[in-house]
Write a protein that binds this DNA or RNA. Structure first.
Lengths: 193, 193
DNA sequence: TATATATGAGACAAGTGCGTCTCATAAAAT
DNA sequence: ATTTTATGAGACGCACTTGTCTCATATATA
């Protein structure tokens, strides 16, 4: 089934539909999602056994895409602040994936915090934050947990600007960086590089 | 009906249940919400004609509570940075209300941005941000929209710390302030007052 | 105390989503 | 060209949600 052009096209369309619709309307029925994908409901069930299975697959694709875009970073040998800045640049174009993940932020079943892939991404952020602290780029008295939440949440804010205000990705990346490290207050310290 | 002790108690319980459950599980049925409230389903329908009506009422209560806690501020005559800091202090104890509102952030129907009460709150924040810019407390080159998003999103992050990490409200308020104005970078400028 | 009324439990019909199935068709693979 | 297979349309039963209603009970009001 995966070897057939039609199948991969259908599958992709369904995942994209879920990626776009589920965060905006968590109560969307599978009928709606199939319609948005422009694909028959029966076909949806041929690819995904249930609503849960579809969501799990969209989650998987989101994680994989993000991880895929981040892995080349390892060769760059960046650490601390530089690593965090580079990661933002690389992830922002995947704003729709990030949005899907963040739509589970309030979820009562803790889908995110239970997920090993999320834990992995989180662990790398922790490493960078602690390196940045050692390097004097992040104040040591700020709890790492708080710094990470701030980082995640600014990423979300950046995505929001890009989508709703159609802001330029590069511009928003710069805004995010200076806001994160320097705050919105006066006299910005050097932030670029 | 509003004059009867039992009615006001039931109504309050239902609203609290919606406030707590809907953000965590947007697909929760009215049966579930009634059970969480410890109240019969029939009684729920006596108070709220439909799911929409319940949500609208929870929204109303959330807005009213937040506005109620903010209005005494007018007598303090604060402006700009000071006004924003005070507003955070006053709002953080209403974290559950803020959470309910922010659960509509991604909503496809734009429930928040269409709501006049939200527009009102937003307008007051805009005023404070622009005052802070005039006062030299916020850099003028940062778009007001971006600053506001950052503010909202840090508020959300603060709530998250309070709930999930059981952090102290005063402590988180201080973290939020220094992060917002000074960033996470070294050499914090004076933030307290 | 006597009256009024909010409540809980449950029945009820209508609507909707879910998951499975069949069959004819169109598009792939060979 | 022939075979294979993914698809769309639709029917089907099941379970659940919704919204309304009734009636006995408990609680508040007077």
């Amino acid at each position: 089934m995966l070897r057939d052009k039609r199948a991969v096209k259908s599958r992709r369309a369904l995942i994209e539909a879920g990626l776009a619709e589920l965060p905006e309307n968590p109560m969307a029925s599978l009928t709606e999602i199939a319609e948005i994908a422009g694909i028959g409901r029966a076909t949806l069930y041929r690819h995904f056994a249930s609503r849960e299975a579809l969501i799990e697959e969209v989650l998987k694709v989101s994680f994989e895409d993000i991880i895929q875009v981040l892995t080349p970073m390892e060769k760059e040998g960046l650490r601390g602040k530089q690593a965090m800045m580079r990661a933002v640049e690389l992830m922002l174009p995947l704003a729709d994936r990030l949005r899907f993940l963040s739509s589970f932020w309030l979820d009562g079943e803790r889908v995110l915090s239970k997920d090993p892939r999320y834990a992995l991404m989180e662990q790398e952020t922790i490493t960078s934050v602690e390196q940045a602290k050692e390097d004097g780029d992040i104040r040591k008295e700020l709890p790492t947990r708080w710094v990470m939440n701030t980082y995640d949440v600014l990423l979300f804010s950046a995505w929001d600007m890009i989508v709703k205000e159609k802001a330029d990705i590069g511009e928003v990346t710069a805004l995010l960086m200076t806001t994160f490290f320097d705050g919105v207050g006066p006299k910005p310290r050097e932030t670029q590089e």
